[in-house]
Design a protein around this nucleic acid. Structure first.
Lengths: 329, 329
DNA sequence: CTGAAAGCGCTTACAG
DNA sequence: CTGAAAGCGCTTACAG
C-alpha cells in the first residue's frame, strides 16, 4: 500500500493538484461541488498531508520547542503537560528537546523545525543567549532574566518569597534560623536567600549569623548536609527555611533521624508546594510559587511572541501555604 | 539576516549544491580539499540543514512518537525521560503526542513525521489498532497485548505480581484480605486481581469473599472508597493489596484517619514502587514492577522494529520490596 | 473557478 | 571528483 499523496487525490477526483490543495485549504476559491468531490475522495483514500512538504513550503512549523535538561520531577512534568494542553488548543505542537549543551540548542533552533522556543536551562552564558537570539525566532526564558524584541522571560518573585519566609518565621518567634540554599548560580536560589536576609535585616536581625547548608534542590543532598551539620555538634536551629520542598523534606528526615521533632523542636519551611508536601508527616508548610501555572503561561507567551508582539518580563507571584511543619515558639 | 541554505554554502565555496551536499554527507566521494573548503564555509556561515527539506527528500524522519494521554505522574515522566535519553544515543528524536482520540493518533501516524511509535493508551479498540497498523510504521504498545509483523508490546507480568502479593500476605498470616482494584478495563488491574485470587485459591482460600474497592489508580479515590467502606461499618481487613502505590497510600490515609494503625492493625501492600513509597510513614511495602526501565526498553524495541526486525512480546518481571507497611500477624 | 508552473531545501542517481 | 537534473509533496501567485 503506497501512502496517499495529494497527487493521488487529485487524479482520483479528476482535478489538478492545485485545485485539490485549494479545496482542502482554501475553500472559498473553489466551486462547492469540486470541493465536495475532493473532500470525499480525500476521505476515501484516507489522505493525510505530508507535514514535511507542508512545512518546507510554508517556512513555518507551527511547533514550539521546550528545552529542558531532564524530564524527571514534578516541575518538568507539570511544565510539559501544561504546555502541551495550551499549545494544542491553539494549534501548535510541542517538541521537547533535551539540552545537552549550547551547541545542541543552537542547532535545533536553526533547523527550521521550530517557530518558537521555551528554554528552561539556568546555566547559559550571556554569549550563548545572544547567539540564540540571532536566529530571530521567538524565545522565552524560564528562570533567566532576559528581555528583548523577540525574547521574553518568566520569573518567580523569589526575593519576595524569601522575604515572606523570613516574615512568617519571625512572626512565629523564631530566633535561631538556618537556610538550606538551593543550587549555586541558580537565580531563584540566590534571590530567595537575598530576600530572606533582607527581611531579617529590616526586622532588626542585622548581625545574626545564619548558617547556610547547600541542599542542591535535592532531597538526598539536603538530608546529608543536615545530618552532617548536626553530627558536627552544632546547636540545631529553631527554624529552617529551605530553598525548595525537596530539600526541606530531606532536612526533616535528617532531623527526625537525629531525634529532633518537627515542628516541636524545629520548624521547617519549604518553597514550591509540590504534591509531596501534603503526603508527608508532618505536612510541609511552604511558599507556593505557583509553578503549576508556568506551563500555561509559557505557552501563551511564546505564541504571543510568534504572533509578532514584543518581548517582556512576566513575574509570577506566590503565597504562603500553612500546614503542619512550623509552629509558634 | 537570511537563513543560510546549502545553496549559500555552495555559492560561497564556489562549488555546486550537489558537491556541497556530498562534502557534508558523503565525504568519501569528494576530494579532501573540496571537502575541507565546504566544511569551513559551512562553519563560517553557521549552516544548519533545513530538516524539513531533508525529511521530505529522505522519506524518513528519524523520530519516534510517544503517544500518551497525559504527562503528569511519575510513570509518564520516567517513560519520557528514558525514551529521550535512549533515543538520543541512537540518533532518534522523540515527539510526545498527547492522545485526544483515535483519529488524532491516526492522523499523526500518517503525516510522515514519525518512523515509529510507542503507544501507551489502554482504551484502544481492536479496530483502531488495526487501522494504526495499516500505515505500516512500527508500533510498540504498552499495557496492551498485541504482536504482529511490525508491532511489539511490552507487558508487566501482572498476574505473577498479583500472585506474589497473595503469597506474601498469606505468609504473614493474613486472613481477612481486601483488594483495591485499579481501573476497570485496564489490563494490569485485571491481571493483578486475577493472579491474586488464583494464588489465594491455590492456597486453600477457595471460598473466601474478598471485598473489592475501586481506587482508579488514584490516591484520592482510594482514600474516599476506603473511608466510605469503614464508615459503612464493615469490619476492617487485616491486609490490603492495592493495585498501585498511589491507591495504597490513599488507603493508608483513610485507615489512619479512622483510627487504624498501619501495619499493626492493617497491613497494606502496594504495587509499582514509586518514589513516594520511601517518603511516607510507614514506608510502603510494594511489588516493584520496574516501570523505571520501561522507557529504555521501549526505545530499544521500536528502534529494533524500525531496523526491520519482527514484532514480539516483551514481559517485564517484578519483585517484592519489603518496607514497613506490612507485618506478621 | 481551474490548472500549469515555480519553488521551498535537500539528496541522489547519472553523465561527464 | 564534480555538476546538471530530477524529484520528495506541498502551496501560491499567475494566466486563462
Amino acid at each position: 500500500m503506497g501512502i496517499t499523496t495529494l497527487r493521488d487525490v487529485a487524479r482520483e477526483a479528476g482535478v489538478s493538484v492545485a485545485t485539490a490543495s485549494n479545496a482542502l485549504n482554501n475553500p472559498s476559491v473553489v466551486r462547492p461541488e469540486t470541493r465536495k468531490l475532493v473532500l470525499e475522495v480525500a476521505a476515501k483514500l484516507a489522505y493525510i498531508p505530508n507535514v514535511n512538504g507542508q512545512r518546507l513550503r510554508a517556512r513555518e512549523s507551527r511547533t514550539i520547542g521546550l528545552f529542558v535538561r531532564a524530564m524527571t520531577g514534578e516541575y518538568y512534568c507539570a511544565l510539559a503537560d501544561q504546555m502541551f494542553r495550551a499549545c494544542q488548543e491553539q494549534g501548535y505542537e510541542v517538541h521537547i528537546c533535551m539540552v545537552v549543551d549550547t551547541r545542541s540548542i543552537l542547532k535545533k533552533l536553526g533547523d527550521r523545525t521550530l517557530d518558537g522556543a521555551v528554554i528552561f536551562c539556568d546555566d547559559l552564558e550571556a554569549d550563548a543567549v545572544e547567539r540564540m537570539e540571532a536566529y530571530g525566532i521567538p524565545l522565552l526564558f524560564l528562570g533567566l532574566e532576559r528581555e528583548g524584541e523577540r525574547t521574553s522571560c518568566i520569573l518567580y518573585e523569589s526575593e519576595t518569597h524569601g522575604r515572606m519566609a523570613a516574615d512568617y518565621l519571625l512572626g512565629l518567634g523564631k530566633k535561631r534560623l538556618l537556610h538550606i540554599f538551593g543550587l549555586p548560580g541558580n537565580l531563584d536560589s540566590e534571590k530567595r536567600w537575598i530576600g530572606f536576609r533582607e527581611e531579617l535585616r529590616n526586622r532588626g536581625m542585622k548581625n545574626a549569623k545564619i548558617p547556610v547548608l547547600y541542599g542542591l534542590f535535592e532531597r538526598a543532598s539536603a538530608y546529608r548536609e543536615m545530618r552532617k551539620y548536626l553530627l558536627e555538634g552544632h546547636q540545631p536551629p529553631d527554624a529552617i527555611f529551605a530553598a525548595n520542598d525537596l530539600s526541606a523534606i530531606g532536612c526533616m528526615a535528617a532531623l527526625s533521624e537525629m531525634g529532633y521533632r518537627v515542628p516541636e523542636d524545629v520548624s521547617v519551611l519549604g518553597c514550591d508546594d509540590i504534591t509531596l508536601c501534603e503526603y508527608i508527616t508532618p505536612a510541609l508548610t511552604t511558599i507556593r510559587t505557583n509553578f503549576w501555572d508556568t506551563g500555561t503561561l509559557a505557552a501563551d507567551e511564546v505564541i504571543r511572541l510568534i504572533r509578532g508582539e514584543e518581548g517582556r518580563t512576566i513575574r509570577q507571584s506566590g503565597n504562603l501555604v500553612i500546614r503542619k511543619s512550623c509552629k509558634l515558639s
